[in-house]
C-alpha cells in the first residue's frame, strides 16, 4: 500500500494520480479548460450584446469604429491590392493553359468575395486592432482601472466591451467590401494592364458569374469573424489577471499573443463551418 502511495503524484488540483495517468489527466484538464473558456466567453459575449444599445453608447461605438475600421483601411487596401494582383497573375497563367483566360475576372472576384476577402480582412484586423484591444483592456485590468469602473457603478462590460463588439460588427463587413473591391482592382491591374487581357472580358466575367448570394455569404462570414475576433480579444484582455501561467505585464503580453493566435485559428475553423452550412 505504501509503495502504491509513493508512486502517486499530486496533480495541480491537489488530487493524487498515478504517473501513467498523467497524460490523460493533462488532456482532460486542457479540454475542460477549453470548454470552460468557451462557455465563459459565450456568456461574456451575451452580456456585451445586451448592453450595446443606449444613447451613451453611440459616441463610444463611433470612436471604436474609427479605431477598428477607419484606421485599418490603409493596411486592408495594401494587402487586398497585392492579393488581387497575385490572384490575377496566377489564375491568368493557369487558365490560359485551358484556353479559359477570360474567366480570370470571375475567379479573382469569387475567390475574394467568398473566401479571401472575409478571412484576410479578419486576420489583418486581428493583427492590427485585436491585439491593441487585448493589450489596452489587459492593462486596464491589471492597473485596477476596470475595478475602478465597477466601484463607480459603471458597468465595465457596457463601458469597455460593448462598443468594441458593436464597432467590430460594423467595421468588418465594410472593410471586407473595401478588400473585395480593391482586390478585384488588383486582379484587373495584373491581368488586364500588365498581362494584356481584355478589360471588358474581365469585367463581364465578374458580372456574369458573381451572384448576390455570394456577396451575402461573404458578408455573413465577415460578421461571424467580427463577433469571434472582438469576443476573443476583449475576453483575453478582460481576464488577463486570471491567467495561471503569468502575472502583471507578462500576463498582458501572453494574453495578447493568445488573443491573436486563438482568433486566427477560430477564423479558419469557423470559415469551414460557415462555408459548409452555406454550400
Amino acid at each position: 500500500m505504501a509503495a502504491f502511495e509513493n508512486n502517486m503524484t499530486e496533480s495541480t488540483n491537489g488530487q493524487q494520480v498515478l504517473p501513467v495517468l498523467r497524460p490523460f489527466t493533462f488532456v482532460g484538464r486542457t479540454i475542460m479548460d477549453w470548454i470552460n473558456s468557451m462557455g465563459a466567453a459565450t456568456i461574456f459575449l451575451c452580456l456585451a450584446l445586451l448592453r450595446t444599445l443606449g444613447r451613451k453608447q453611440l459616441f463610444k461605438t463611433v470612436q471604436q469604429t474609427y479605431f477598428i475600421g477607419a484606421r485599418s483601411i490603409t493596411i486592408i487596401m495594401l494587402v487586398s491590392l497585392f492579393t488581387g494582383m497575385v490572384l490575377g497573375l496566377q489564375s491568368y497563367h493557369a487558365l490560359l493553359k485551358f484556353g479559359a483566360a477570360g474567366a480570370v475576372g470571375s475567379l479573382v472576384s469569387l475567390s475574394l468575395i467568398m473566401e479571401l476577402g472575409p478571412v484576410l480582412t479578419a486576420i489583418m484586423i486581428t493583427a492590427r486592432a485585436g491585439s491593441a484591444i487585448t493589450a489596452e483592456i489587459g492593462v486596464q485590468r491589471i492597473s485596477e482601472q476596470i475595478d475602478a469602473l465597477s466601484t463607480m457603478r459603471i458597468n465595465p462590460i457596457r463601458y469597455l466591451i460593448s462598443p468594441k463588439i458593436s464597432a467590430s460588427i460594423i467595421s468588418f463587413p465594410l472593410l471586407t467590401a473595401v478588400f473585395d473591391l480593391v482586390g478585384i482592382l488588383g486582379g484587373y491591374v495584373s491581368a488586364v494592364v500588365l498581362l494584356g487581357l481584355n478589360g471588358g472580358v474581365y469585367l463581364h466575367s465578374i458580372k456574369t458569374y458573381v451572384e448576390m448570394s455570394d456577396i451575402i455569404n461573404g458578408f455573413t462570414k465577415s460578421i461571424v469573424f467580427a463577433v469571434i475576433v472582438a469576443t476573443v480579444c476583449c475576453y483575453q484582455g478582460y481576464f488577463a489577471h486570471m491567467r495561471r501561467d503569468s502575472h502583471g505585464a507578462q500576463a498582458v503580453g501572453l494574453a495578447t499573443t493568445s488573443a491573436v493566435v486563438t482568433s486566427c485559428v477560430l477564423i479558419l475553423v469557423s470559415d469551414y463551418v460557415v462555408t459548409s452550412l452555406m454550400v
Binding site: 486596464q140 492597473s143 485596477e144 482601472q145 475602478a148 466601484t151
Partner: peptide, 12 residues
Amino acid sequence: ISYMFQGNALLD
C-alpha cells in the same frame, strides 16, 4: 460608496 485605489486607478 466611493473608492480611492492605492494606485489611483485613473483611466490613463
